[in-house]
Design a protein around this nucleic acid. Structure first.
Lengths: 334, 334
DNA sequence: TTTACCGATGTTATCGCTACCGATATCGCA
DNA sequence: TGCGATATCGGTAGCGATAACATCGGTAAA
């Protein structure tokens, strides 16, 4: 294999035209079985890998779906992704992931990069984008689905939950159980719009019943169990009579629980805990922590379905806005 | 914006040739600042997104590095990825992730797909590939780096650790602390070659001192805290006098620890625990669990550096084989 | 037997951009 | 004033594949 095999090499070796070789390898119709077999045989024998760059330029179609998420570390997006993948598997489309790092500028750059590859669809987490990004998304000639969040104005298609409502609902549950001295611990706070909305909903849910937060910690860094533990320790030191803490993420509430375990505090008697996301790390703990399921997988699945739907329909797909209902899991920590 | 803006539209509006517009937008030399500014202005105003498919076909270069990993759920690969990203950020290259799902066939398909986009480099986890995959990787006209593992024969470049040795080392540590009735719990066992190697190394390490495993559980499913907890419970039921368990992953050892917490078993007095990877979930637990750091980030960084190095050097880069030394963290659970 | 038609294949014309190289403008300097 | 060296810019020719249409035996229907 001195130099790269091209389609024309395969064609020549198989004794057919480039066109026929192309059709054979793509599984297109109008090729006799004998010819197809011969072409495939030659391609395999020589390790021919088609050049999809050329193919896509020619066919004006790219079998990729861009997926832009803030992070892969947070345990939350892999599951959205797997929902997307499972649905796309029924089609020739493949997901490609880009990471925006909870930064609008970074998101803009990543989206520009992805759109420059002319994907068949774009799925992006969140409704908040820079102006330039919004413009790009509106002009993109592929279906765009904003996911995870439903509080706001989607550009076109949208699948998510109301984080505002999720926060409010958790406030109601916590108040209903008689807790009154309540703290909130959040991470990535200025940048994570959804965490911010849960916070806002939570505070307003408390306010509806005349309760204000007793303590509050907005931490700029990433969610981590160790961070949750540390911030919980600090908050309980500041407010020894706190009776409940609501965290922006299960990762953090697990950290809080670890603090309680280490200090011999009993949950929920000494302090009640609640998180968000219903992450798999909650399963297997000695105590089931309260959480809200964020519908990650269904969101991914629906988003992918919308992309497929848009691809199949000749005309532009009418805007789809799907608001899923997250389910609170009270567990044993409230 | 009725139809897609093309470079020629930008050029026309800017009153320059396509060529000049192309140079201006790419930041290529030989363009006056005034012209460049005007072209950029027009492009921005009209939301022009260059078509990288056409650009790459023409320039015969793609600024993407394919990264193929078994899974994103396992908590281990995101960190390799972030090592890769951080290094690539100094260059115009961008990582693109593909998921092989711990399946050789799937891996083959994913790699074929990625290579069909003619990336500037390919980083793949593991040394074990199907024959067809090996052939593709050898013929690929881009640098290929196999990462994570160093036990075996790399195709060309390789950055990893010896999992065999990691298993052996942990066996030595465990034996040195006097444990004799030892169990092993592993997941993804037939497919995860690296876990398998740690197991083999562990068993041989024990054998060197005349010890055999007291109990063994190879679980086919994914690692999860809940799974670790359940399998630990079952193993301890089978072997009540087990004094130590080595897990294929920290995720599982945390599950084991959760079982101990729930049952009131003290670690390491009642049973000692050790895992692998040094995952962030270990941080913040009431007890620090023994583990081996898998050097995930440095591996990602080095792999990316090799890709950059190969890109810069005119001639073919001589094979690089880098074996990092994982560090055991004994914690408090042994 | 003739004609319409169909499956299998080949020919031509892009797809949107950039490498390559030639053309032009500008400027310093003798 | 005239020359070559620079700085800018443009025309042409692909990159490697596929869409669309043309071709061409051969078979079934008339």
């Amino acid at each position: 294999m001195i130099k790269k095999m091209l389609l024309k090499d395969v064609a020549r070796l198989a004794g057919v035209s480039e066109m026929t070789a192309s059709r054979a390898l793509r599984g297109a119709p109008d090729v006799s079985n004998a010819t197809r077999a011969k072409v495939e045989e030659i391609a395999r024998a020589h390790g021919y890998v088609p050049n999809r760059i050329a193919g896509s330029l020619s066919s004006q179609s790219v079998n990729l779906v861009a997926v832009v998420v803030p992070s892969l570390n947070s345990f939350v997006f892999p599951e959205v992704l797997s929902g997307i993948s499972s649905v796309l598997k029924q089609s020739p489309l493949k997901p490609v992931v880009g990471i925006s790092g909870y930064e609008m500028d970074e998101e803009e750059e990543v989206i520009r990069e992805m759109l420059s590859w002319r994907p068949s669809g774009l799925i992006v987490a969140g409704l908040e984008h820079s102006e330039a990004t919004q413009k790009m998304l509106l002009q993109a000639d592929c279906p765009v689905v904003e996911v995870m969040d439903a509080d706001g104005t989607p550009l076109r298609h949208c699948v998510g939950i109301s984080h505002l409502q999720a926060g409010r609902d958790m406030a109601a549950q916590i108040l209903a159980r008689g807790y009154r001295r309540i703290g909130f611990i959040g991470t990535k706070m200025p940048q994570d719009f959804r965490a911010r909305k849960r916070y806002d909903g939570f505070v307003s849910g408390l306010a509806e019943q005349g309760i204000a937060l007793t303590d509050l910690k907005h931490y700029a860094g990433d969610s981590a169990i160790a961070t949750g533990r540390l911030l919980t320790e600090q908050m309980l030191a500041r407010q020894p009579d706190l009776d409940c803490i609501y965290y922006s993420s299960d990762v953090m509430s697990v950290g809080g629980y670890m603090h309680c375990l280490a200090e011999g505090l009993s949950v929920p008697q000494d302090v009640a805990l609640a998180g968000f996301n219903n992450l798999p790390i909650l399963e297997g703990l000695p105590l089931q922590l309260a959480t809200t399921d964020a519908c990650r997988r269904p969101i991914g699945e629906r988003a992918a379905e919308i992309v497929l739907q848009a691809r199949d329909s000749a005309a532009d797909l009418a805007p789809i806005r799907e608001i899923l209902s997250p389910r609170i899991n009270l567990g044993q920590s409230l």
